[in-house]
Write a protein that binds this DNA or RNA. Sequence first.
DNA 1: CGCCCATAGCTAGTTTCACTACCTATGGCC
DNA 2: GGCCATAGGTAGTGAAACTAGCTATGGGCG
Lengths: 114, 114
Amino acid sequence: MAGSGQELKGHLDVLLLATLAAGPRHGYAVKEALREGSGGRFDLPTGTIYPALHRLEEAGLIAGSWSAVDGRRRRTYRLTVAGERRLHADRGNWREFATAVTALLEPGPWPATS
Amino acid sequence: MAGSGQELKGHLDVLLLATLAAGPRHGYAVKEALREGSGGRFDLPTGTIYPALHRLEEAGLIAGSWSAVDGRRRRTYRLTVAGERRLHADRGNWREFATAVTALLEPGPWPATS
DNA sequence: CGCCCATAGCTAGTTTCACTACCTATGGCC
DNA sequence: GGCCATAGGTAGTGAAACTAGCTATGGGCG
């Protein structure tokens, strides 16, 4: 569902980095991996994927290089060392975040109402 | 830590609704409940909390009413029926989302690299 | 008394970021 | 030729959380 909407906000970068952790991919392959790996839940438009990859590249977390396959230009990205560090940190951060939100969503843990 | 940053993006509303599920609270109490309930992880500025509550009220998910305590004006919010429905739906959605992200972050699940 | 802090509410303006909606191009299929 | 899948891209929009301020009360402290 395209409705995956903006809930990804702030968490897209980790997912992209994680996609590349298994080995270099070109942008379109990243998009497909994300879609298949999530059972169709994260079927993001290219207008989301490409700008995000550009951001990550500019931040030095991934590195892209052009290649040509059958007259098709491809930009293949790989994780940099900084990207690996970031991925590691972000994984931990996600676990903390998810644990906190999940705990808060369970009915009852709130301090007294008044 | 203020570093809770923008990772909340898109998930703040559920947390606010969940805070009110335990009973009516005024805005500042919501902020405090969120902070304490998360072990300090979600210590959000009032400039985040109040506009969010206004949004939720405008959306009909919560209802606010003024009262005065010791010359202090307080706006107390409670969940509406629509708000309860939304909270229920959003809880399910969060679980799905969190499961998907967590699965993707584990090394290995990706389809073949090439 | 003057000052700051905690409580309680609010707003204006900025920034970030995913989105919609487009565009270019190749190769295969009908 | 027309269309789809693959592969890359940009411009502009909009939502939402942020920064940085504001008003106000009451209590504690020097």
